[in-house]
Amino acid sequence: MGDPVFRLVTGNRLRDGKVIYFVGAGVWTPLIAEARLVEEWDGAALLAEAQAGPPPHPAIAPTLIEATRDGERVVPVTLRDRIRAGGPTIAYAGG
């Protein structure tokens, strides 16, 4: 048995494209640790809640992803989602 896998909703912020996570009640955060995590069976409802609201929606393409907890940290299951959460894995000219 591995760690329990939770669901959370992520998207990119409309005005600047930054990665954001759904907290609930129309609120989004750039910090994955603040994201609302739900069990697998509550994922569809969380996604529907995240997608609701009048245009323009603050997040582009809200998507359900999988993550586990490691103490205080929330760690996405796929490498792609870990890179979205943590930034490029290589040093680049700017930082």
């Binding site: 930054k18 990665v19 245009p55 582009i60 792609r80």
Partner: peptide, 23 residues
């Protein structure tokens, strides 16, 4: 909010603007 993302995507792409992982 006058343009949906679907409608805007094609317009922004015609100007070279993509949405990538981080921005």
């Amino acid at each position: 909010g006058q343009l949906s993302e679907d409608e805007f995507r094609s317009l922004r792409l015609m100007n070279g603007l993509y949405l990538q992982l981080h921005a």
